[in-house]
Design a protein around this nucleic acid. Structure first.
Lengths: 229, 229
DNA sequence: CCTACCGATCGGTAGG
DNA sequence: CCTACCGATCGGTAGG
């Protein structure tokens, strides 16, 4: 019922071209807003679920108004995918760094598994864990196309474990079939998101040691280098 | 805009007292409708999540109209709790039966663990698995009061594992601290809901054997009795 | 258990 | 990025 002409209500509309932000000085600002949105989405999707979070919740969390997230993302689903993609890339990066950090000690297979497990706990439970939690527990809500794009990254992440488990299996230190071992091990680790409490109970180092004891049944031969958390 | 009086539109309203179904011949029918609703809710909550399922979805699945589920349940949340409660009670029953079935073979701790694991896979992946899946993956959506009621049942279910793991730990067959071992083992098993495909890959028996090999590192001394699935 | 409905909220969009 | 808005859908209820 607003009969006032738009010009009077909004007399000083910015002259910026619509739909295409400038690529010069303020490009960084736009990027930061995008990152802020993904961060807020990760936290809310984790706490309340994808379907339980409204785009208004996300907008409010970064100080925007209800329609503004759609300036940065074309849909709520695109935001979810951005969260998951960030989670997987971060996980792969940390895993790579952890392996590089351990390489000079010439670790055997058991020590490598320890490094992978410790890094995985860091990804799951350390800072930034919202992203990978959403990746793991909200996969129902992504489209088939998004799912296959993420499956590629998941494949990269998991591929690193394969030769390590193969070696342990051949050595007789892992009696479980390798394919099932990987699935069961990931389950044991991923489930920690449900019960881990940083303020009490075991540390991430203790968790990794316990997992090694459970799966391999012996302490790792090389005292594992601690991952910064 | 309907100006026709209700009496003309709905001239033959049943005389049944409102809000209190008769407790005689048709009591069983009412119970069946309730059970149907819980069943449909379990299937839909599992496939689409609690927040992704509307009460209309559930009503349609059992051939009711949109408002009718609220004749049987006072809220959507009450339906969720009913699903979870049924899931836990069924799990406890199956676990009890599995242990009773194995008792006459005088199983040692490793054989008992095998029975527990096999029964747990049956609960997670066999018929009726929707209930426990919802219990495991939709816990975010229940109220604090409901949560504590379910925690009691979960405690009962988990308590059975404790002495078994304790014994294995003392025997040196489980080197992981018992408390963490239970959490990690449950994770390994519960995660199978995410990847298990009944139509390909391992059977539930093979899964249980693989899990035993991973956690204990040896075949169970007593050939395990198969759980009916 | 159906009918008819309500207030609230949701994802998303046009226009500036 | 805000304003103003839309159509759709949601959980739940009164009354019979």
């Amino acid at each position: 019922m607003n009969t006032v002409s738009p010009e009077l209500v909004y007399p000083e509309a910015p002259r910026r071209a619509r739909g295409r932000p400038r690529k010069t000085a303020d490009e960084r600002d736009d990027g930061n807003r995008r990152v802020e949105l993904v961060h807020a989405a990760a936290r809310l999707f984790r706490r309340k679920g994808f379907d339980g979070t409204s785009t208004r919740d996300i907008a409010t969390a970064v100080g925007m108004h209800s329609g503004s997230p759609f300036y940065h993302f074309k849909s709520k689903g695109a935001l979810l995918h951005a969260v998951m993609d960030e989670g997987m890339r971060s996980a792969i990066l940390r895993q790579t760094l952890a392996l590089q950090g351990a390489a000079q000690a010439r670790p055997d297979a058991a020590a490598l598994l320890h490094v992978l497990i410790r890094s995985h706990f860091d990804v799951l439970l350390g800072p930034g864990s919202d992203f990978i939690s959403v990746m793991l527990y909200e996969s129902r809500s992504i489209t088939a196309k998004q799912r296959s794009a993420l499956a590629q990254l998941q494949g990269d992440y998991e591929a690193v474990w394969e030769p390590v488990l193969q070696t342990l299996h051949k050595q007789g230190r892992l009696q479980c079939p390798v394919k099932l071992a990987r699935l069961l091990i990931f389950g044991a680790l991923n489930w920690s998101v449900q019960w881990f409490d940083a303020k009490k109970g075991a540390s991430l180092d203790e968790l990794a040691d316990a997992a090694m004891a459970l799966f391999i049944g012996e302490a790792p031969p090389v005292p594992a280098r601690r991952v910064r958390s």
